[in-house]
Design a protein around this nucleic acid. Structure first.
Length: 823
RNA sequence: GCGAGUGUGGUGGAAUCGGUAUACACAUCAGACUUAAAAUCUGACGGCUUAACGGCUAUGCGGGUUCAAGUCCCGCCACUCGCACCA
């Protein structure tokens, strides 16, 4: 063997071995438990960045670890190949998106190969491949037939100068990124999926995802935003105006209504009111992103209309307010300024009346609960310990009683009813872009929107196009859009919009299982591998991608394509990779290129550092010197193994002949196996697993070269190589036969823990006086509590602190500490 | 603005169920080896204090619960992620 650790040579040798033996290709096998491990596939942006390296290393560690548990492990890889950056690159580099994407895929595939990831490449897919997106088009037509895909008008960011739709990220400070002109909102026809039909299931099934991070489940719950309230109707001179509220208990305090600028009532009023029309027009120059809506200055204007309060019959004004979302509820809200903070601010700004209708019923006499209409207090919006006032017949009720009484009164008078509302909106899947899967619809003057028949799929996106970067080429290609109606045969036009790229990423995990099936979207193989046992990806996908995938999986299930309810059993959300405390980005100039590190140190070092520097869920601060440290450890490991082997075969281990130091080293070996097993499998804290192996190696290095020491080292080295194999598979592949392992380490079984090696005769315990550590003592492992107590009291330094005080209590925590409470 | 997180030495982090704070690394310093440097090996390493034993103090800030709090509760501050057309 080579004396020097030479990563370049040994990594190439390992990768060649895997390639030659087709080591990661898997198939259906009922004799073993299946394990489907998946990392979110990359957008082929050009080259791998550190976030990719981290993501794919985490998944690879899990995949290789599970394989060592004897499971049939599938780990595929592919490309999320449609999207905006290809269009931007097309303009910048004058290269067609298809060609640019294909080149990037080729380069990045080679990088992944160099990192040694255990992928079954025979299942590779790229979403821009018609063989992939044809099934998505086919599935869309199924959903269309079921009424789950429908068309409606929706707002987009529109740049009048460029005559094009802008993505939210293409709007900078309310202006177009290309020409810097203010964007406006424009309504256009768009296709939607009825995800709201599945809101209840998506919410309820979150409870079954007990192997997902709680924070992700909470975020999804809040995003779905189920609320129970009342839908009620205000009369607007004979015309009904519907509002939804979760606080009917405060209805008697509603002093005005607020409608969105896009609301038909606002539009009607503006027709005869130039000032209002100008205001509404001004409000249309705000990008559609909700964050922009929520942070802008709250503005409004009186429509001059008034509505009749459904309970009091009083007349209240109707205002247009820029913060009312047309897309939530009915686009109109009742405003109760005394008990809603935003309404409160708005009423103060425009001098609208404020009527207090709930009062604090505080048990705490010192609490100041006097109502003051000039300053907002949190308790104004409370639902607990409150009582209704100024509400006529509804006075004196708590939240629930008032809610019920008012909801009943509205129901009885036919002016409203209880209703469940969701914050979740239907999923808009249309994009007015070129580089995406064409929406398989033909628009016919006579027949309307007609889905493309299955036999005519896929609708292939032309790739040999001239791209000006502003508008989609297929919108100007009669040879693409001119066609005949499949129903009546009349001349008709194809839809030129393409799908949202979340469409492709919502079902790719299932397609990997039958990637080469050209006859069906999914088959029995897909059902064998699905659901994914372990999914790994960035926390930034916590809501959208993961919610859409969950939805899509239920759609696939309802179409009979899979049996399971959820796509991902266990989820690991990895943190960001930072450099100098900030996210790596070209604009900040703080990027680290993984390629140069691979070239310099080898893949194992890069993998090791990525896993060692931080737990996977936290952000990871990149450190060049930390990488050197990782490399140093691998060199030491190489030397340790080499030195051991060079001294000749180790004698057989005789556990009864070990001295205390050897016994301790052997105990450490088996404790480490148990810990690393737990860290990889249950905790998924790879950093602590690596630290534990480093500790073990440090201890092994201190053993002498006596026979039994060498026997202990011999056993430990095999365990070390097995434990490190998931993280640094190349060096492990090379060391495995050297330290006496047989067969391919890929399929070696995880080392077993010898329980007899774990026993200890004595334990170190701590003695505290009033919670402060005052002494340490070594005690027999089986010492009784009373014995521990008296030993603790005997300690010199403990006695010092007990002088002149009375012992009140002694707390013994076996195996840990004795705390003496005295004063 | 709303929703969800994070905050521990000079740095990355550990402390898994409320029980010895700072494991494992990085950096730095000192020593060994060397003509020298690199590499490697050994040792020191939160702060204040002590000749030493030891003591005091410290987990973003301010309170609280507890025999015991980095961990639980309340209130702040800072940063990160998401907000539906970036992926």
């Amino acid at each position: 063997m080579e004396q020097q650790y030479n990563p370049k040579a040994l990594e190439e040798a390992a990768q060649t071995h895997w390639l030659k033996h087709n080591s990661f290709a898997v198939k259906h096998d009922d004799s073993r438990e299946k394990f489907y491990c998946l990392a979110m596939f990359p957008y082929p942006s050009g080259k791998l960045h550190m976030g990719h390296v981290r993501n794919y290393t985490i998944a690879d560690v899990i995949a290789r670890y599970q394989r060592m548990q004897g499971k049939n492990v599938l780990q595929p890889m592919g490309w999320d190949a449609f999207g905006l950056p290809a269009e931007n690159a097309a303009i910048a580099n004058n290269v067609a998106p298809a060609k640019w994407t294909a080149q990037n895929i080729d380069y990045m595939r080679e990088q992944l190969r160099q990192l040694g990831f255990a992928y079954d490449w025979s299942r590779e897919l790229a979403t821009c491949d018609p063989d992939y997106y044809r099934w998505e088009q086919w599935f869309f037509t199924k959903l269309f037939d079921k009424g789950l895909a429908y068309k409606k008008k929706a707002e987009v960011n529109w740049c009048e100068t460029d005559q094009t739709v802008l993505a939210n990220e293409q709007v900078v400070d309310g202006c177009c990124w290309r020409c810097d002109n203010p964007v406006e909102r424009r309504e256009i026809d768009q296709w939607f999926f009825k995800i709201t039909d599945y809101a209840d299931q998506l919410l309820a099934d979150l409870d079954t995802l007990d192997q997902w991070p709680e924070q992700v489940r909470t975020m999804q719950r809040n995003w779905i935003g189920r609320s129970e309230g009342v839908e009620l109707t205000f009369d607007l001179s004979g015309q009904p105006l519907q509002v939804y509220t979760t606080r009917p208990d405060t209805l008697m305090g509603a002093t005005y209504l607020a409608v969105a600028p896009q609301h038909p009532v606002a539009q009607q009023a503006a027709a005869g009111n130039a000032a209002l029309a100008a205001f509404i027009d001004e409000m249309s120059h705000i990008e559609v992103a909700e964050a922009a809506m929520a942070t802008m200055e709250k503005q409004g204007m009186d429509t001059g209309l008034s509505a009749t309060h459904p309970l009091t019959g009083e007349s209240i004004p109707v205002w247009v307010a820029n913060f009312v979302l047309m897309s939530y509820g009915s686009g109109a809200v009742m405003s109760v300024p005394a008990h809603d903070e935003r309404d409160f601010e708005f009423a103060q700004k425009y001098g609208l009346p404020i009527v207090q209708v709930i009062d604090k019923r505080s048990s705490d006499a010192s609490a100041s609960c006097a109502y003051d209409a000039s300053n907002w207090q949190d308790w104004y919006a409370d639902k607990t310990d409150v009582v209704t006032i100024n509400s006529g017949q509804f006075d004196g009720l708590d939240f629930q009683a008032a809610f019920d009484a008012i909801a009943d009164a509205l129901t009885d008078s036919g002016k409203g009813q209880r209703a469940v509302n969701y914050r979740l909106r239907d999923w808009g899947v249309s994009r007015q872009r070129y580089w995406g899967a064409p929406i398989p619809i033909i628009n016919c003057d006579g027949c309307g929107a007609v889905p493309v028949p299955a036999a005519d799929l896929p609708v292939v996106l032309p790739t040999d196009v001239a791209f000006d970067g502003v508008s989609s080429p297929i919108k100007h290609m009669p040879e693409f859009y001119e066609t005949q109606c499949p129903k009546c045969g009349a001349a008709a036009t194809r839809e030129t919009d393409t799908f949202d790229t979340f469409m492709e990423s919502s079902w790719y995990y299932a397609r990997y299982a039958c990637a080469n099936n050209s006859n069906a979207m999914l088959d029995a193989e897909a059902n064998y591998w699905a659901p994914v046992d372990q999914y790994v990806g960035g926390i930034e996908h916590a809501i959208l991608h993961l919610l859409y995938s969950r939805f899509y999986h239920k759609l696939l299930r309802d179409e009979g394509l899979v049996d399971s309810d959820e796509p991902f059993i266990r989820l690991l959300t990895q943190g960001m990779v930072l450099k100098d405390g900030a996210k790596m980005s070209k604009s900040k100039g703080n990027t680290v290129d993984p390629q140069s590190l691979i070239d310099r140190y080898g893949a194992d070092t890069v993998r090791l550092f990525s896993m060692f520097a931080a737990p996977p869920e936290q952000s990871l601060e990149w450190s060049d010197s930390g990488v050197e440290g990782a490399n140093r450890f691998l060199k030491r490991l190489w030397k340790l193994a080499h030195a051991h082997v060079a001294a000749g075969p180790a004698p057989a281990l005789d556990s009864s002949a070990l001295n205390d130091v050897q016994k301790s080293a052997r105990r450490k070996t088996h404790e480490t196996i148990a810990k690393v097993d737990d860290d990889y499998g249950r905790r998924q804290t790879f950093n602590t697993a690596i630290a534990a192996v480093m500790e073990l190696c440090n201890e092994l290095g201190k053993l002498d070269d006596s026979d039994q020491s060498r026997a202990v080292i011999d056993e430990a080295l095999r365990a070390v190589v097995l434990m490190l194999n998931p993280v640094v598979p190349h060096i492990s592949h090379a060391l495995w036969p050297l330290v006496g392992g047989s067969g391919d380490i890929l399929d070696a079984r995880w080392p077993g823990v010898d329980a007899s090696a774990l026993t200890r005769d004595s334990i170190d315990m701590v003695v505290q006086v009033n919670g402060k550590v005052r002494a340490k003592m070594s005690v027999a492992a089986d010492a009784a509590n009373t014995e521990l107590e008296s030993m603790a009291l005997e300690q010199d330094n403990v006695q010092r602190f007990l002088e002149g005080v009375t012992i009140r209590k002694v707390i013994v925590v076996p195996g840990k500490l004795v705390n003496i409470v005295a004063n």
